[in-house]
Amino acid sequence: MPVSVLIVDDSPIARKMMRRSLPPDWDITIQEAVDGAQAIDIYRKGGVELMFLDLTMPNIDGYGVLEILQAEGLNCIVIVVSADVQPQARARVLAMGAIAFIPKPVNPEGLQEVLRQYGILV
């Protein structure tokens, strides 16, 4: 059964970079959202298992998305992928329910390590 992945980023290039960073032989289906509001819409339809979430976005930023997900029970795994690499940003999103913080540009090996660490990739 493929893993349902949602990539959330306002930058089309960042979404491409994210896709390119995913393990090539990983059995997944990928949806994309261009901002936080669209991400919430897709999440509420159900089925999203893993969300790669940018922080700095229009129409609900990444923090706003995490707040809403928490209020609604956080029924998916969230990995934040952001250029905002301040330690406070990392601490804040982990406290809000994200399981990991990956700095941009994404290092594919580092990403795979995180996915294995949490048993998402076997």
């Binding site: 930058s11 290039i13 960042a14 250029a83 690499v85 301040q86 406070q88 941009k104 540009p105």
Partner: peptide, 25 residues
Amino acid sequence: DALQELANIGMGQAGDSLARIWKEF
């Protein structure tokens, strides 16, 4: 689009440097 994202990554690093100097988020 590419330049915007690359600038975004660069400015994220600048923000981190400023946060370390300023000791503020």
